[in-house]
Simulated scan of single mutants.
Amino acid sequence: MPHTEESLAAIADMPKVELHLHHEGAAPPAFIRGLAQEKSVNLSGVFDARGGYAFAGFERFLRTYEAATSVLQSPEDYARLTTALLEECARNGVVYVESFLSPDFCGGGDLGAWHEYLHAIRDAAERAERDMGVTLRGVVTCVRHFGPDKARLASRCAAETAGDFITGYGMGGDENAGALKDFAYSFDMAREAGLRLTVHAGEWRGPSEVRSALDDLGVHRIGHGVRAAEDPALVDRLAEAGICLELCPGSNVALGVYERLGAHPIERLRRAGVPITVSSDDPPFFHTTMRDEYLNLARTFDWDEEEFGALNRTALAHAFCDADTKKKIADRLEAP
């Protein structure tokens, strides 16, 4: 049965769990422009004529992302950013979010500076939870195209601050740079510190990259992972092992991984029994929100509230937070 306006509104308004959000990538363009003006930083070429982020293709996206991030220069800047992104989460009904935090951007990998940045981020997150009802947890990420040595610094920062707020470790950046096995040391360090593991893989490179994520890094979740759909045996392995895919359909379409949402393998992966979640990735860059993601999936694949409810329960089951936090979020998901 086609969706009505009422059924779509109910889906858009559902409480949501988001597991794949880049902290800097969630910065509203107006926020970054304001910081640039305050600091007299020239960001020419970063914004388009409408005031959004300007890029075409993945490599230009990375350059624009890093240019925009250049104005985030202090713990206070990150506290303000944290508040801004959690306000956006609240507007979209997100009750729990894990964001990727990079020590490379928060103090250049220096452990002392990282502590200062993390303190500011956590203070802002605690205020947001009290005032807006959004719970944030951090997943420390190294940046793949910065290389394995920088990744070791990031994993040291992660290991030294692992706990109830920093609950995971992963890697983003350019998937076409280097091999995943080159980063095994940093992932081992994070694992030994008790952190759960994720990695961006299988967005640009094919199924073999997803296998490498499993075999060489031993991750618990995979960011994107959509190219696994090209290999039925790998899909079966993901389903049997219960490896969760952090899917970001709007991002994949915006960057040209798939021409349109209807061609995205999210429905095939779901039907094959692979644990899937939905996230917005870098929402202002890709002109999306979590509400948009839900609405677009509902219209394209005819998912109903029950299916989105199951999606959120899957996301919570694979979240990297502790059991007490999961119980608290489960109650929020079930609240009328």
Rank of each mutant, 00 (worst) to 15 (best):
A125S: 15
H287G: 15
N176R: 15
C321M: 13
V253Q: 01
V17C: 14
E203M: 10
F301H: 06
S280H: 06
T4E: 08
A229Y: 00
R156E: 14
L136M: 06
D123R: 09
Y78W: 13
C244T: 04
R205T: 02
H145I: 08
F320Y: 14
I11C: 11
A10M: 08
R191V: 11
D174L: 03
A36N: 02
M1A: 15
P207T: 06
V97L: 07
T69F: 13
E334L: 11
V140G: 09
T277I: 06
E24P: 03
A54R: 11
P2G: 10
Q73L: 08
A162M: 03
G108L: 01
T198A: 14
A310P: 05
E306P: 06
S102M: 00
E334S: 14
C142F: 00
C248V: 10
G147K: 11
A49I: 07
V17G: 14
A68E: 04
Q37R: 15
E116H: 08
P275V: 09
D282P: 01
C106W: 00
L316P: 15
E126M: 12
G225C: 01
E66W: 10
F187C: 05
E24F: 08
P232E: 00
N296D: 13
D322W: 13
A319E: 12
H22Q: 12
R137V: 12
L81R: 01
E5H: 14
A67P: 03
S212V: 05
L238G: 00
D322P: 06
Y169P: 04
G242Y: 04
G25K: 06
E209K: 03
A49M: 05
R313F: 04
R144Y: 01
L214M: 13
E18K: 04
G45Q: 05
T82C: 05
C321Y: 11
A113N: 00
F320W: 11
S251P: 02
T4S: 15
K150Q: 09
E5K: 14
T64D: 04
G242C: 04
A9E: 15
F47K: 01
N92L: 04
E129Q: 14
W303V: 06
P29V: 09
P249F: 11
S102A: 09
R137N: 13
H22S: 11
C321H: 07
Y169W: 04
A154F: 01
L316C: 15
R63E: 14
E334R: 14
A90V: 09
E98Y: 08
S186A: 14
H224K: 03
S186G: 05
C321R: 09
K150L: 01
Q73R: 15
R227Q: 07
A310L: 15
P283C: 11
P148K: 00
M171C: 09
G172C: 12
L81C: 02
F55R: 02
R299K: 13
V199R: 05
E334Y: 07
D164I: 10
Y185H: 10
A84F: 11
P249S: 10
L217E: 02
A193I: 07
T167A: 10
E98T: 09
C248M: 14
A154V: 02
K328W: 15
L118E: 09
A154L: 05
A263M: 10
V46W: 02
